[in-house]
Design a binder for these strands. Structure first.
Length: 501
RNA sequence: GGGCCGUUAGCUCAGUCGGUAGAGCAGUUGGCUUUUAACCAAUUGGUCGUGCGUUCGAAUCGCACACGGCCCA
C-alpha cells in the first residue's frame, strides 16, 4: 500500500491538464466530501428521450416534467452541457447567471469527463433540442484526465484496446459491438435451452488437456504439487456427461491455447460446445444453419448481412462439399491427384504447398486444403469427410474408414464451426490416442495426450452422439462486421508496454 | 518467424532540402449566454517511442530495440 502511494505521488505533473484538475479536486476536498455517493438517479437519459423527444415545446412547458439524471459530461457549449448516460446523450441547460455565486463557481470548475447528477425541468430549446433546465447539480466524480478529442474521438487502435474504458466512453460504435455480442450470447443460450439442452460447466484446469489438437498453457497446483493445464477444449468432459445420461448439454465459455496472436487468434477465446445423443453430424449441420439464420434474424434483424465487403444471405441453404471435392474444384485437380501419398506429395509440390514427406496422406491433404482452398471459401460452406488422421475423436465414415463423419463450417475464408459424429468405440479411440501420443513423443506439441479415464468412460458406453464447437468471437466478428478478434474482445491480450511507470 | 507501414502537445494530425517545434480541438483568463464540432479575444502546454551513430547541427539520415497495424508463412 505504501509503495503504491509512493508511486502515485511520483507520477504527479504528468502534464498541466492533469495537474490543474488535481488542484480542483484538492480544493473540493477542502470544502466537502469529494466523492459523494448519495445521489439517486431517478430517470435514464434514454427514457427521457423516448418519452419526451416527440413532444412539442409548449406541451412540455405545460407538463412541467421534473427529472433527476446523472452522467458524464462529454460536451460543453456556453450554458449547454451534454452528458452521456449509458451511451445516450442528453443536453442540460446550466446558465451560471441563474445560480448563486457559490454554485456558479462550482459550475465554472466543471470539466469535460466529470460525472454529475442534476435535477431540473424537461423542456425544449428554440432549436427543438430536448434539454433539462438544471435547478440543482452536484459533482459526483471528478475526472482527472482529459477526454480524447471531442470530434475525432479516440482512433489509435492500440489505445482503444489497452484502455477499453476510454474507447467505450467516446466511441458509440465500439459500445454497439459489445452490446451485440451480449445479445448474441444471450440468444444462443436461449436457443439451446429451447431445444432442451442443459448448460453445464466443466473444468478449465485439467490434469490431461484434451479435446483439441493445440498447445496448452501450463500452471501448477501447489498443495498437490501437480502441473495442470488450462483447457484447450471442454470436449472430453462434455462427452463424459453424455455417458452419464445428460443427453443434450452445452457449455459456453473460455478456452485457452498457447499460440500466437493474430486478427483471428487470442490466447483465450470463447467457444460454444454442444453434444446431442442419438444425433448425427448431418443433424448438427441442419441445426447450425438454423442457428446462424436465427441469430441474423433476431439479433441483426435481417437474414442478410454484409461483412467486410461480402454479402451473406443466411436464408439460403449452405453449400456442402467434401474436402477432396473442394480441393479438386478450387485447385483444378482430379481425384487421382490425391489418391495416394505419392500422388499427394507431387500435387503439394505442384501447388507450392510446403509439407513434410513424413506426414500421412490425410495430413498432406489437409495442408493443401488449408493453404489453397480455405481462404477462397467465402459463402457459408460445410466441408465434410475430414481425414481420420486429423480427426482423432470423430467417428469413421460407414464404408469409407479413412475419413470421418465430420464437418467444418467456413464463412469468409474462416473456420467458424467444427462438428462430428462422436467416436464411441472405446477400442478405436484407444488406438487413436496411442497414435496421438506417438506423434507427441516425436515432437508434435499440439498432439493429444492419452486419456485413460476417458477411455474408461467410453467403455461404460457412450450412446451414438454428435457434437460441435462454434467459435463465438469469430461469430461475433461476422455479425458485427469487425475485421479483428480484438474488436470483439473487451480486453484483448496485448504485449506489455515498456516504460509504463 | 519474414516483409512493409506507423510512433511528434491530453486527443486528431502537419512538419519542405538536415538549420533552434506547428495547427485544430481541450485547457487557462475574460466576454457572450436557447447553443448544436457554439461563438469572440488573449494565452499555457513538447525527453519528437527508446538507445547508439553520422554531422558544426537530427523530429528529419543510418543502425539496433520496443510497441502497434497490415500482408505473407
Amino acid at each position: 500500500m505504501n509503495e503504491e502511494n509512493n508511486n502515485y505521488e511520483k507520477q504527479e505533473d504528468e502534464n498541466n491538464l492533469i495537474a490543474q484538475r488535481r488542484e480542483k479536486l484538492n480544493s473540493i476536498r477542502m470544502k466537502r466530501g469529494a466523492f459523494p455517493n448519495s445521489f439517486k438517479k431517478e430517470s435514464k437519459a434514454v427514457e427521457l428521450v423516448s418519452a419526451y423527444s416527440g413532444k412539442e415545446k409548449v406541451e412540455l412547458e405545460e407538463l412541467a416534467v421534473q427529472a433527476k439524471v446523472a452522467g458524464r459530461i462529454i460536451r460543453m457549449r456556453g450554458p449547454f452541457v451534454v452528458i452521456s448516460d449509458e451511451g445516450t446523450q442528453i443536453q442540460l441547460y446550466m446558465n451560471k447567471k441563474s445560480y448563486s455565486e457559490a454554485m456558479a463557481d462550482e459550475l465554472k470548475s466543471l470539466d469535460l469527463g466529470d460525472i454529475i447528477g442534476v435535477k431540473g425541468q424537461v423542456f425544449k430549446t428554440n432549436q427543438d433540442e430536448l434539454t433539462v433546465r438544471v435547478m440543482e447539480f452536484e459533482l459526483l466524480t471528478k475526472s482527472l484526465r482529459p477526454l480524447p478529442d471531442k470530434y475525432k474521438g479516440l482512433t489509435d487502435t492500440e489505445m482503444r484496446y489497452r484502455r477499453r474504458y476510454l474507447d467505450l466512453i467516446v466511441n458509440e460504435d465500439s459500445r454497439s459491438v459489445f452490446k451485440i455480442r451480449s445479445r448474441i450470447i444471450r440468444f444462443i443460450r436461449h436457443y439451446f435451452e429451447e431445444l432442451g439442452f442443459m448448460e453445464v460447466e466443466t473444468p478449465m484446469m485439467q490434469v490431461i488437456p484434451g479435446g483439441a489438437t493445440a498447445r496448452p498453457f501450463i500452471t501448477h497446483h501447489n498443495a498437490l504439487d501437480q502441473d495442470m493445464y488450462l483447457r484447450v477444449a471442454p470436449e472430453l468432459y462434455l462427452k463424459r456427461l453424455v455417458v452419464g445420461g445428460f443427453e443434450k448439454v452445452f457449455e459456453l465459455n473460455r478456452n485457452f491455447r498457447n499460440e500466437g496472436l493474430s486478427t483471428r487468434h487470442n490466447p483465450e477465446f470463447t467457444m460454444l460446445e454442444f453434444y446431442q445423443a442419438y444425433a448425427r453430424y448431418d443433424d448438427l449441420m441442419d441445426l447450425t444453419e438454423d442457428l446462424f439464420r436465427s441469430i441474423a434474424q433476431t439479433v441483426i434483424g435481417s437474414t442478410s448481412i454484409s461483412y467486410q465487403g461480402s454479402e451473406y444471405d443466411f436464408s439460403q441453404p449452405f453449400s456442402r462439399l467434401t474436402v477432396h471435392n473442394a480441393i479438386e474444384s478450387y485447385c483444378g485437380l482430379h481425384s487421382a491427384d490425391l489418391v495416394s501419398k505419392v500422388a499427394a506429395i507431387a500435387t503439394a509440390s505442384k501447388l507450392d504447398v510446403s509439407i513434410d514427406e513424413s506426414w500421412s496422406l490425410g495430413k498432406i491433404v489437409m495442408e493443401i486444403f488449408e493453404q489453397k482452398v480455405e481462404s477462397q471459401l467465402d459463402q457459408p460452406t460445410f466441408i465434410t469427410e475430414y481425414p481420420i488422421e486429423v480427426s482423432p475423436l470423430a467417428r469413421r465414415k460407414e464404408g469409407q474408414p479413412e475419413v470421418t463423419d465430420r464437418f467444418e463450417l467456413i464463412i469468409g475464408g474462416r473456420e467458424l464451426a467444427n462438428g462430428f459424429s462422436e467416436l464411441n468405440d472405446p477400442e478405436d479411440q484407444a488406438e487413436r490416442f496411442l497414435e496421438q501420443a506417438a506423434q507427441k513423443n516425436s515432437g508434435d506439441n499440439e498432439a493429444m495426450h492419452y486419456d485413460s479415464d476417458y477411455i474408461t468412460a467410453l467403455e461404460y458406453g457412450l450412446p451414438p452422439t454428435a457434437g460441435e464447437g462454434i467459435g463465438i468471437d469469430r461469430l461475433v466478428m461476422l455479425f458485427t462486421n469487425t475485421p479483428s478478434i480484438k474488436d470483439v474482445l473487451l480486453f484483448p491480450h496485448m504485449r506489455p508496454q515498456q516504460n509504463s511507470d
